[in-house]
Design a protein around this nucleic acid. Structure first.
Lengths: 205, 205
DNA sequence: AAAAAAGATTGAATGAATTCATTTTTTAAG
DNA sequence: CTTAAAAAATGAATTCATTCAATCTTTTTT
């Protein structure tokens, strides 16, 4: 049986996460004070710091939940991809992008990205980087699948190509988050255009 | 003749910039306190905030100087590029990367990137983004030059390809800044491998 | 079941960025 | 040359994330 201590710990952890996620959505990251998060979670400020190293950590924890969902959604596309290279890429990348604003605002994404860059050694930053790696891997897996189906030429360096597609879509998402005026459709159209040359050239002839 | 006020303003601005750049190099961004920067520049803390919106702004101002230099160095490679697509890309990108650690540490780069993402509306953030755009443009210009020389196929979408190379090298530089253990040579080798498929495929046959 | 040890919680204290009401300096007007 | 208006500089006060010594709770030992 789980001891009282372990149960209380899990319970507090969830209360903190819920309180923070709610506050971030309500007032944005910067205006959400640790004191307020602690008050909502019915703990003290000090306790907050026993659970998370710093304010950024709790945001990255929120983001991680979101990315896990995206990965799961992506899996079903990779398992049964559209028949063309461009079609498959547009479908998977479109899924990523459409999902991205479901829980998180552009401001929250910007902050999360900023923290992940700035404190790469913090545990949640590592987790975030790990999730990026898995997204990148998923793109490569898609290309590999297309190769197996004979849609992509046999001599293509799948990993190199997958990394290039991923780095491009990731960088473009960063730009999207930076520009409040840029729409999801703009983003998808631009990335699609960027992908076309490489996608066309790696297609089996 | 420039009034006294204008001259004093320019002078103070330079003193602040010099003081900050020196302190950042000596003790790193986080440990450099506004109070110390102000003391070195022989102004008050309040005056600092009349010249820069916040601490991040002054770092981005420092970084901008560095990127201007890189752009200038890149120009001479674009004007007289190596004869192959891979050769030309490796040369230009190598120049960017080698230059990057001349004035700035990885920690300073990380902080600058983080700030540029987080506060995209601040004046220096816009300047930083603008410099990124010009770097991207320089890559496209290189491809265009190679096309004119008959090294790159005539039907290639230069802009799309240039953006993809750039976004990839930029994302990889971010990863480089995040990993304290990654060397410049590792970085160059990985990017070179990533570039090869697209570089080969766009070459005129 | 009492005592000791280990583990957690707490909130007041610390330190650094940022603000803002006041003072000082420069320019323009009479 | 004085004086009023505009622009800048100033630093004490504020705000907020983070720390840490003291206290309380749970678990383990006897």
């Amino acid at each position: 049986m789980t001891g009282l201590r372990a149960r209380q710990k899990a319970d507090r952890n969830r209360r903190i996460l819920d309180a923070a996620a709610a506050l971030f959505r309500e007032v944005g990251y910067d205006s959400a004070r640790i004191e307020d998060i602690a008050e909502r979670a019915e703990i003290s400020v000090g306790t907050f710091y026993n659970y998370y190293e710093n304010k950024g950590d709790i945001l990255l924890a929120t983001v991680s939940m979101e990315v896990e969902e995206v990965l799961a959604a992506g899996r079903s596309i990779v398992d049964n991809p559209p028949a063309s290279v461009m079609g498959a890429l547009d479908a998977l990348i479109g899924e990523y992008y459409d999902h991205s604003l479901y829980y998180l605002s552009k401001e929250m994404w910007r902050t999360a990205m900023a923290i992940a860059i700035q404190q790469p050694e913090s545990p949640f930053s590592k987790r975030y980087t790990e999730l990026d790696r898995r997204l990148c891997e998923q793109i490569s897996t898609l290309i590999l699948k297309l190769k197996a189906k004979g849609v992509v030429a046999i001599d293509v360096d799948v990993e190199a190509v997958g990394e290039m597609f991923f780095n491009n879509l990731n960088m473009m998402f960063t730009e999207f988050a930076k520009r409040e005026t840029m729409s999801l459709d703009d983003l998808k159209a631009r990335v699609s255009r960027q992908n076309r040359p490489l996608a066309t050239l790696i297609a089996a002839r």
